[in-house]
Design a protein around this nucleic acid. Sequence first.
DNA 1: TGCCAGGCCGGGT
DNA 2: ACCCGGCATGGC
Length: 215
Amino acid sequence: MYARLLLAFGPQHWWSADSAFEVMVGAILTQSTRWHNVLRALDRVRSSGMLSVRALATTRLSAIQRLLRSSGYFRQKARRVQVFSRWFLATYRGRPSRMFATKLKILREELLSIWGIGPETADTILLYAGNQPVFVVDAYARRVFQRHQLIDGREPYSTVRHLVMHALPRRANLFNEFHALLVAVGKQYCHRRNPDCAHCPLGTFPRQLEGTSNG
DNA sequence: TGCCAGGCCGGGT
DNA sequence: ACCCGGCATGGC
C-alpha cells in the first residue's frame, strides 16, 4: 500500500516549518481541524511575534485565543498550547534537542500525560517535530485501512499503530511519508459520505490489494 | 443549507 | 472498557 501510494502521489514533503516548536503548536491546532484554517492561525501567531515557547507560555489566554480563532475550538486550543508550552519550557528549557534526546518510549509517555495531548497529537509531535520513528493513526488512516479490510475500524489507537509499526521498517522518513500519503488518498478518494473509490490508486475496495503483492 | 474537518477531555455507564 | 456531549471556525 505504501509503495503504491508513493508511486501514485509522489513524496508529500509534509510539514516544513521554521522550527520544531512551530510543528508542535501546529500539531495541537490541527486537532479535528482543516490544515488551511490552522495555517491562518499560525500566521497570526507568527506575525504578532508570539511564535516562541516563552511568549506562548506567559501571555494571557485571552490574547492567545484571539490569534487562534480561525483554527476552531480556540478557547480549548489556547489552553492546550499554553499548557504544552509551559511544560516544554519547564522540562526541556524549550529546546527540541533536549526534548528529543529523551528515550522515545519515555518521551511519549510524558507527552500523553500533558493535558490536551492525546495519542495522535503525541505521535504527530514525535514524528514531524522530532523525526522519531512512530506511525500516526488518524481518521484517514483508519478509513483507508477499513475500506481495504485491514481493520474493522473500532480498534483502539494502539492496535492500529502497532499493526503498521510491526508491518513496516521503523524509519521516520517512511512513517512521515506514509501518514501524509494516507491523508492524500483519503482526502481524494475516501471521504465519509462519498467514497469515490473508482479511480483510487489503491483499487476499488474491498480486497483489491490481494494478489498484487509478493507479501 | 447542513455537514464535516489531520482530536481530546470529562463524566457517565 | 466503551459511549457521549462539548468544544468552534470556515469551506463546500
